[in-house]
Computed example of a mutant assay.
Amino acid sequence: MTKREREVLHLLAMGKTNKQIALELNISDFTVRDHVSSLLRKQGVTSRMQLIAMQAQQLGVV
């Protein structure tokens, strides 16, 4: 996972929308969607919620 993907994932976990993430990271909405798609593919999940739940589990939060 790249540094930027980690940043996007952190903001997703905070409940931010793609538009909010794009504004905060000063990137385009398209780039955020690209990062989210990459994260989903890398983690083998199909939804943002699954992605967040998987990361929380890996961190021992759940």
Rank of each mutant, 00 (worst) to 15 (best):
35 H>D: 10
24 E>Y: 06
34 D>R: 15
24 E>G: 01
25 L>P: 07
46 T>E: 13
24 E>C: 04
49 M>E: 12
42 K>G: 11
37 S>V: 05
51 L>A: 04
34 D>G: 13
37 S>I: 05
46 T>G: 06
28 S>R: 04
49 M>V: 05
47 S>N: 00
44 G>S: 06
56 A>D: 05
26 N>H: 10
50 Q>K: 03
39 L>H: 06
33 R>I: 08
41 R>E: 13
26 N>Y: 11
51 L>S: 04
26 N>P: 04
41 R>M: 07
33 R>W: 13
40 L>G: 02
23 L>K: 15
39 L>P: 01
43 Q>C: 07
54 M>F: 01
45 V>N: 11
29 D>E: 13
25 L>T: 10
27 I>E: 02
43 Q>I: 00
54 M>R: 00
56 A>V: 01
56 A>W: 05
37 S>Y: 08
53 A>T: 09
28 S>K: 07
45 V>R: 05
28 S>H: 06
31 T>A: 13
23 L>R: 14
24 E>S: 08
50 Q>G: 07
33 R>L: 12
34 D>T: 15
29 D>P: 14
47 S>Y: 00
23 L>M: 15
34 D>F: 14
23 L>W: 13
30 F>H: 03
23 L>I: 15
30 F>V: 09
35 H>G: 04
50 Q>D: 11
33 R>P: 02
24 E>I: 12
34 D>Q: 15
39 L>S: 01
55 Q>N: 01
41 R>W: 11
51 L>E: 03
40 L>Y: 00
55 Q>H: 09
28 S>D: 04
53 A>W: 02
28 S>W: 09
26 N>V: 12
26 N>F: 12
42 K>H: 13
26 N>S: 15
23 L>N: 15
47 S>I: 00
29 D>G: 11
52 I>K: 00
47 S>Q: 02
32 V>E: 10
38 S>T: 11
49 M>S: 11
32 V>N: 12
42 K>P: 07
47 S>K: 02
23 L>Y: 13
54 M>Q: 07
